[in-house]
Design a protein around this nucleic acid. Sequence first.
DNA 1: GAGTGGTCTAGACCACTGT
DNA 2: CAGTGGTCTAGACCACTCC
Lengths: 272, 272
Amino acid sequence: MSEKGAGSATGPYGASRLEAEIQAAIDRGDLRPGDQMPTTSELADRYAVNKNTVSRAISALKAAGVLTGPAGGRTWVRVRPQRITRHNVRYHREKERVLLPEHERAQDGVAETDTGMSIRDVYEDTYCYDLVAGPDDVRAIFELPDSEQLLRRTHQRRHAARAGASGSTSYIPYILVNRNPDLLDSDHEPWPGGTMHQLHTVGIELDHIDDRIVVEMPTREEQQLLDIPTGVPLIRLRKVSWSTDGRAVEVSDIPLPADRTELIYTTPLDRW
Amino acid sequence: MSEKGAGSATGPYGASRLEAEIQAAIDRGDLRPGDQMPTTSELADRYAVNKNTVSRAISALKAAGVLTGPAGGRTWVRVRPQRITRHNVRYHREKERVLLPEHERAQDGVAETDTGMSIRDVYEDTYCYDLVAGPDDVRAIFELPDSEQLLRRTHQRRHAARAGASGSTSYIPYILVNRNPDLLDSDHEPWPGGTMHQLHTVGIELDHIDDRIVVEMPTREEQQLLDIPTGVPLIRLRKVSWSTDGRAVEVSDIPLPADRTELIYTTPLDRW
DNA sequence: GAGTGGTCTAGACCACTGT
DNA sequence: CAGTGGTCTAGACCACTCC
């Protein structure tokens, strides 16, 4: 026997009904963030649908970021991550801080600047420096001859309270920074004062910063690396820093999970 | 008999294999954007899988924005929408233009400013003005007493070449604009010079603009209204305009489908 | 190693599209 | 109206988790 059950006047059936039902239970507070979900078989019994149907509903709710859990393991109600705000006012602050003495600069490193979080939230940081050719689109921004190499600085961070991870990849033309050996050694991270101060040590002053924002679904690797649940988009922020002599001096790629990010840009206008 | 088929060393099977297979056919050029897909039964035969499995693969590719088509109708390879760039330099340009004579201002209306597209791409515009209480979060920005109303201006637009639609909702405190009756009549849209010129007619000059960017999945209604394929995120841009006397004078909510939007923000830095 | 989530086949049915 | 995409049940199986 095969009963379909669609078409009743009381509402949607099957996976979409179950989905709404579970969502409502969460909204109602019957299921609280962090709670373990009943097993699929149990839900199938309780809601009088096939186990297969339950599986699809759960899968959809995982995609929507409402539930989490590994395949084969139990399922939880997901703790909604807090949104972290990243404001372009930071760029002004960072530049002002460069000329301060070191002990006043020491509050934030490169990554704080890029990802937008305070250094106090940190659990574990990994810095990695190397010399590479770099991707073509980055080379095109620098307008570099083929012979020139780029200093690539990658940064990974794991947060407290299983709130996920973040990271960034930054490129600087090697020729700009090879005068200061300190800049080529990842052991100096976090650098007091951030990238703008690093560039200052080789005589570069920034004129303006371009932020380019594009939203895409993360690759499978990024999903794993950044602890992004299925279905959550990724904000790709590419920050390009321009020096006062009109050249691009740093390109920084910063992936930001969309469910825990808020971007704010203030554009001051000239007076009439 | 029930054959499962997972676990072979030659690669993934079932829905995910089919998905990759179809994606590859598109990348290879065997299937071109705009082409009609074979029917699910035909694909099931060709790839030796169940019709059900085909359906799930197709569904996933629709979610990924690779395929389109209505339920019950045929399925096509989706024409990838072009990314439209929205640069905050526009705010400076708009302010400069306000003081120009009307025939020079007439190139762009309010909506061009908000959505970031040229007036030449337009097919059909719908403007709607009304007086409302407005959402609480908007009222909080204006810091308005309960008695004050807001002028809400909604705008909908359908584009050429089935590239989708766009829209925006703008709020202005009624008390700021009721001196100029032209501002309360949607028949004057598109207003030459945009919102900044409208505010100029009631003696308001803008000091700065805050753009707040958040990314979420669209609601079902927005998905329909903006012609967004399943699975494509929505960039919610909230633009808040601040006058030279320090008050918020306009709040604009602009939903931008993430697959056809690129945002660029330039932050100029003061010299040392 | 039992339990769990995930996914496939097979067959049936439904809502919708498009002649 | 036939054809198409979508979705449900039912049963089987697999990879993984977690004890």
